[in-house]
Structures are given as C-alpha cells and as structure tokens.
Nucleic acid binder design. Structure first.
Lengths: 193, 193
DNA sequence: TTAATTACGTACCAATCGGTATGTTATAAG
DNA sequence: CTTATAACATACCGATTGGTACGTAATTAA
C-alpha cells in the first residue's frame, strides 16, 4: 500500500447501507451513493466493486449488526415471555416513530432481489435461519427454567415468531392503526402460554 | 370515439400487472412494458397515463382479483378451521411451485413504494384491512356455528392471520426448507383451537 | 531523491431511462 | 365524399443510468 485511503471504508459502507436500506437496490443510483458516502465514483469501484457488490457488502454488514442486536435484546431479559414481549413491543414502537418506515433491510431485500438472484435468496434465508435459532434458544431456556411448559415445541414456535416478525415489519410499512398491530402482537404472545 | 382501440385495454393491463408483480416498479422499464403488453409507448400514455398511473391501475386490478379469490376460498369451506387450514396450505403449496417466486403484488408494493408514496401506503393498507375483515367474518361464522369458543377474539385473531399471511408470503421468497413453513402454519392454526 | 504504486478528481462513455412531437391511418358523423 | 377526431407507428427528446479512461497527487521503498 503506497497511498492510504483518505476515507474510512467502514464508515462509507455504513452510509451506503443506510441508503440501500431506505430506498432499495434499484431506486438507489450511483450518484445518490457518491454524495451520501462522500467519495467519488471510482473510489467505490476500487474499494467495493460494482453496485451489486457494494449492496451485498452493505447487506452483510446489516445482517451482522442486526443479528447481534436481536441476540442482545433477547438475552437482556431473564424471562422468555418478557423477552419476546419486549422484543415485539420495541419493534412496533420503533417502527411507528420512524419516517420513512425503512423496515428491515434484509426483509426488503428478500422482496426485491431474492426471487431473481440466488445469492440474495441464500443470504436472506440464512439470516432468517439465524434469527430462528436465537428465538429457539430463548424458548428452550424458558422451558429449562420451568417458565414454559415442557411439551412446548420450541422449534415450531421459533419459526412462527420469525413469520410474525416478518409479517409485522412489512405490515407496518402501510401504517395501519396502531391497535391493529398491538392486537396481533398480543395474540402472537399467547402462543407462549 | 372515432377510431376504436386496436388492443384490449383490460388484457394489456393484465400483462402489465404480471410484469410489475414479478419485477416490481423500478425494475420494470417502459420497454419491458411495451413488448409484454404488445402495444406502443404512446398507447400506454394515452390509455393509462404515465408509468406510475399504469402501475396503480395494475395494482388496483390485482387487489380486486386477489380479494375475490380470498373471499372465494374462505367461503368454499363450511368449517372455519378447515377454511384457514386450506387457505394457508394452498398459499404455501402454490408459492413453492412458482418460479420465480412472485409472492403477493400488494405486499411487494408495500415494501417497495408504501414508505415513500402515500398513495400506495393507503392502497396497500386498505387491501390488508379488507382481508382482515374477510378473516374476521369467517371466524365469527365459526363462533356462531359453535365450532369456535364463544370468547374467541375474532378481530384480534383475524389481524394476526393477516400478519401471518404477510410473514409467510415474504419468507417464502427466500425459499426456506418446506418443513420450516409447514411448522409455522401448523402453529398458527393452533390459535383457532 | 528517484521510482514504483495506488488513491484521487474530472471528465467522459455508450446505453437506457421515462416521456413526447409528429405524421399517417382508420373510423364515425355530417 | 368530406371533415373532424383519435389511435397508430416511428422517431426523437433531454436526462440519467452504471461504469471507466486518464491525468494528477500522495505515499513508501530503494
């Protein structure tokens, strides 16, 4: 390396992530990216590759950060029921005060790119699978502690919570009445009792 | 009217709907549309307006057709439990044999356009609300017939089924193991018992 | 201090984007 | 048969798209 980069690669990638997250792949132009990232076009291509590669790097970054956040939120609570209640209630509260409603970058990508690009089909699937494992571990912890019934099907329940997470996140993009979503969360949580 | 249209407006709109459904708004170009619809560019603009207006017309058409399909499927069964079981199992079966996985046009639009365009936020929200009413009526029918417990919260349950519908539809875009989805459907259906 | 290497900024590329002006053709009314 | 009207196809518009060639500036190794 003879001349060091004048920009922070991670920081610029983070800006790209925010932009792709908010607008999606197709609606985000190279001009959008250069102005938001604060670097020139050739710098993007030398540091990350083409637009698709930059998008992939941004998604991988999101996936890592998001997975760690979910893990942290679940572990923060001692009770499994309280963990899921806090998780879903936070999800709803955060999404309702966001504008525009970005939702989840990974879910957005599942809708926009996964059906036409196997790389993103795999990437997004693996993220869901990881979340499912996190949910399952939380449920199994609740079973061991006696909080949840011993015959609880942890795996099936975890998979259902992933479905609920996706459904809630996407649904809130149309900004339905808050009570609609709250009722759904309450009903979903009854699966734990 | 002095010279009749040489193309069938509804039929061409249907082709546009298929294309937007499969590729989304941004990824579908006017050239894609003209070749698929079999008409020239100015014909699109004179018959439907600009690209956004054509998209809106296609979405409205989808919404009507889809709502009627859902209504038909729910009414086809006599038992509420069987109605929802058939509904969700059909959803999964159809989606797993589709390639590419188009999902639901309305849900796709909720993700791509609703956060940035209030018109589509409203349009997609109203469609979800209508589905929720259909679900609720089916549940209430089950309560009246004695099939479901009298203290069943029909509204909350219907809203939860909408969340599940969205979650399942989007999740399947990443083509998870079929058992994953089947387990989730089975768990969701336990909410009826 | 020189040479090699790489980042940077500018300016550019062909291709495609959404959208339209225009001339021609077909129809119905008079 | 003429005339008004609107649909048709072609050909075009400026703007923007993703991507790159190239000359300059900066850094390290020799």
């Amino acid at each position: 390396m003879v001349r060091p980069r004048e920009f922070d690669e991670e920081q610029a990638l983070d800006e790209a992530m925010q932009l792709f997250w908010e607008k999606g792949y197709e609606a985000t132009s190279l001009s959008d990216l250069t102005s938001r990232m604060g670097i020139q076009r050739p710098s993007i291509y030398s540091a990350y590759g083409d637009k698709k590669a930059l998008f992939e790097a941004a998604l991988r970054r999101y996936s890592n950060v998001h997975a760690a956040q979910v893990r942290g939120k679940l572990q923060h609570q001692s009770s499994a029921k309280e963990a899921f209640r806090a998780f879903f209630e936070d999800l709803v509260a955060e999404e309702y005060q966001a504008s525009p409603n970005r939702g989840c970058f990974c879910i957005n990508t599942m809708v926009e790119l996964a059906p036409h690009d196997e790389k993103f089909e795999v990437l997004t699937r693996e993220h869901q699978m990881y979340l499912s494992v996190l949910f399952q571990e939380t449920i199994e912890q609740g079973i061991r502690s006696g909080e949840l019934a011993a015959n609880t099907n942890a795996k099936a329940l975890a998979q259902t919570f992933v479905v609920a997470l996706i459904g809630l996140t996407v649904m809130m993009k149309s900004r339905p009445d808050r009570r609609f979503v709250d009722h759904a969360v309450e009903t979903i949580l009854t699966l734990l009792s």
